[in-house]
Simulated assay, not measured.
Amino acid sequence: MDSQDTYWQDRAALEWQVELGVTDAILDAPVDRYALDPVPVRAAPVADVPPPAIARELDPVAIARAAAAAAPDLPALAAAMAAFEHCEIKRGARNAVFADGQPGARVMIVGEAPGREEDRAGKPFVGQAGQMLDRMLAAIDLGRAHENTDRAVYITNVMPWRPPSNRTPDADEIAMMLPFLERHIALADPQIIVLMGNTPCQALLGQTGITALRGTWTEVLGKPCLPMFHPAYLLRNPAAKREAWADLLTLNARLKT
């Protein structure tokens, strides 16, 4: 074999090793590692070995549940909700929208999420839908600022922040805010809960389809509950006002019993 052949064979072997990922030449001759005497490895004392760090994903629902449970009253709950940093919707909102009306009122209305006007004002139901809600309530002598506490209402939403482009909150977002809503209901302690729209029905009833759910009394957290059309839906579908009026009469009759 001449030197030319040896050159090309060596070069082919080198290229093959490069393709295998070899980057450095350690020795001129190969070493048979199996022929070497094994070197005993001394185990370090257990106390000298720090425990490995275990990466755990944060559970927003568990964090929300702990924060909500720790709130002794409504102002503390509002502060805990405003400080909650695990809902992406918050990052695009101007204000947290907690509640309006009279705490301790017989009727608690739960809506879906703030819109543009609510985001600006920091109060629920102040835009066009809110103005319609006030007219609906006044028709049966209810109101968020009613001088008679027996005819007052208390209003909140499932979501305290305005979703981008007023989109519907998704299931994960609803789940992480549900502990705050449940604690809100417990602290406000209404006699009757009104769920306006699909989102509160999904949150508290685990159901959607407000057209089928509306007008039928059910129970939420041990309290009587009436699903109703959201006022924004009535603005888009005026023909549904007849069903909404029937639901208001049902609510009024329940309050008189």
Rank of each mutant, 00 (worst) to 15 (best):
M196C: 11
V158R: 09
K90L: 02
N95G: 10
A175N: 06
N157H: 13
L133G: 10
A129Y: 02
L142I: 03
E88T: 15
V194H: 06
Q202H: 11
Q102R: 15
M136F: 02
R167D: 00
M159P: 10
V110K: 07
Y154K: 04
P200N: 11
R214G: 01
E85Y: 04
T199P: 12
R120W: 04
H184Y: 09
F125M: 15
L221I: 06
E85F: 07
D100L: 11
R144H: 08
T211H: 13
L195F: 04
F98T: 05
R214D: 00
D119E: 07
P190R: 05
L221Q: 13
A152L: 02
R167S: 09
L221C: 08
A139L: 08
R167Q: 08
Q207H: 12
T211K: 13
M108L: 15
R106I: 00
G92L: 06
Q131A: 04
F125D: 05
A212R: 14
T168Q: 13
P179G: 08
A188P: 11
R162K: 15
G209C: 12
R94H: 03
G209W: 05
I210H: 00
G111D: 07
R94G: 05
L142E: 03
T149N: 04
L133T: 09
N148F: 07
P103R: 05
T218P: 13
M176L: 15
E112L: 08
I140F: 09
T208N: 10
R214T: 03
P200R: 13
A212C: 08
V220H: 08
E117S: 14
D100S: 15
G215C: 06
L142Y: 04
A188G: 12
H184K: 12
R162D: 01
Q202F: 07
A186M: 05
A175Y: 00
I210L: 00
T218E: 05
V158M: 09
D150S: 14
R144T: 03
A139P: 09
E112S: 15
G122S: 13
E219S: 13
V153H: 07
E147K: 14
P164R: 12
Q128A: 15
H146V: 07
Q202T: 14
A152W: 02
H86C: 06
G115L: 01
G101A: 06
G209V: 07
P179L: 01
T149D: 03
P200D: 08
F98R: 04
A188S: 14
T156R: 11
P227S: 03
C201G: 08
H184S: 07
I192C: 09
I210R: 01
A139W: 08
Q202D: 11
R167L: 06
E85T: 14
